[in-house]
Simulated assay, not measured.
Amino acid sequence: MTRLRLNASALSEQAEKAGDTTSYAIALRAGVQPSTLSRLLNGTTTPTLATLVALKTAYRMDTIDSLVLVPEQASA
């Protein structure tokens, strides 16, 4: 079974626009644990809806769609 993954490049792009250049800064702004964000960025864990919403809200994104890689995109 293929798991959903965080689209790290989309998150990094939004974070850079906001001036956040480290994963710690991203975690702090979104209110998620730095260790959780690290695992998401490394692709070792599946993002929860709550985490995706926190990231979307922190970076004022319209939807969570761009933060998620569907299985076909993750393997490409």
Rank of each mutant, 00 (worst) to 15 (best):
L37Y: 00
L37G: 12
S38V: 01
S38A: 15
R39Q: 15
L40F: 04
L41P: 07
L41W: 06
L41T: 08
L41Y: 09
L41H: 13
N42C: 10
G43R: 08
T44R: 14
T44P: 11
T44V: 07
T44H: 14
T46P: 07
T46N: 13
P47A: 00
P47N: 03
P47I: 00
P47T: 01
T48D: 12
T48K: 15
L49A: 15
L49T: 08
A50Y: 05
A50E: 13
A50H: 04
A50D: 12
T51L: 02
L52C: 02
L52G: 02
V53D: 12
V53T: 13
A54G: 06
A54S: 10
A54T: 07
A54I: 11
L55A: 01
L55R: 10
L55V: 03
L55K: 09
T57K: 13
T57A: 09
Y59R: 11
Y59W: 07
Y59A: 11
R60Q: 15
R60L: 05
R60M: 09
M61W: 06
M61N: 07
D62P: 09
D62Y: 08
T63Q: 12
I64T: 10
I64Q: 05
I64W: 02
I64M: 08
S66I: 11
S66M: 10
S66W: 11
S66H: 12
S66C: 14
S66D: 14
L67C: 03
V68R: 07
V68A: 01
L69M: 05
L69N: 03
L69F: 00
L69P: 06
L69I: 07
V70S: 11
V70T: 12
V70C: 10
P71K: 09
Q73S: 10
Q73C: 05
Q73K: 13
Q73M: 07
A74N: 12
